[in-house]
Amino acid sequence: MNIGRFWHRAPNVFGLILFAIFLAITPLWVQSNYLLSTAIFIGIAAILTLGLALLMGYAGQISLGHAAFYAMGAYTSAILTVKFAYSPWLAMALGVLITGTLAYLIGKVIFRLSGHYLALATLALGVIVFLALGEFRGLTGGPSGLPGVPQLTIGGFSFDNDVKYYYLVWAVFWLLLAFSLNVVNSRIGRALRAIHASEIAAESVGVDASRFKLRVLVLSAVYASLAGSLYVHYMRFVSPQPFDFNASVRLVVMAAVGGLASVWGAPFGAAAVILLTVLLRDTLPFFIKNASGEHTVIVYGVILVLIMIFMPEGLTSGLLKRRRWPSFRSKK
């Protein structure tokens, strides 16, 4: 293999190794249960953000109802395990299958239209799914939710405490990150970047733009479904509230903060937004009397608008320079 081309991949390979070491040692110094559980939520959010970042940054499309895919995974897992006593892993796989199929069908229709109908269609999907979760009480338990979701186990090993669950969630994220980096650095990633640069030129070399947008949409929906399953098996309970429109918006904020130019931004976007939420929840009442969780969304809104105006590539790549390769290459 050509040495120069190995160096192109090197930053990602070393990045993945360093990131794995960082993830592995974090529970050793994070002793607080509260922080550890926050880290688990960040991991779940990072999985969602990763998919959304691929969709927004690489396919140039936006999903405003990503919470719907998240909910589909969560509820498929919850319903199948609680009501039908399925194995959690099988339920998770079926969740992926169902969610992926739904995303495929939607994308199949939407990407035939030029323009930004995906934003509207996913927005509608988000509302429909959210309403349906409250409406079909027999299956979903309605607004009060569905308790009694079992723990995840492998053989005799049970993910029954936060440390174990932390490693599970972040291992899944790490694998998906590696998978995404591989996709991005393959013919498919190049085709996507080509579409982003010029759809006409991409088509002129044989790239079927709508087909690749569709694949990324399905991939991101699959990630969201996995995140949903991991979420319910951690909470052991599911209700519609975490899957409302605000949840979809929060995911877009995470992706935007993390940056759309690189999948590496996903964990940072997720961590930044979740830590900020925690911080605001604890500090906002000092500044504004009666401040509630809803007030914190103003801050998201401001962040979102400011980032999109001043750093449309996202915070991470706006701060780090947008060089993709290490700087030993000369640039004329």
Partner: peptide, 26 residues
């Protein structure tokens, strides 16, 4: 951001709507 990409513009309007809603709540 007149010449920004459609995705950027859509996200901005989403942000604006959140801000308006939050400020109205305040």
């Amino acid at each position: 951001v007149r010449s920004a990409s459609p995705v950027t513009l859509i996200i901005i309007t989403v942000g604006v709507s959140i801000i308006i809603r939050g400020v109205a709540l305040l």
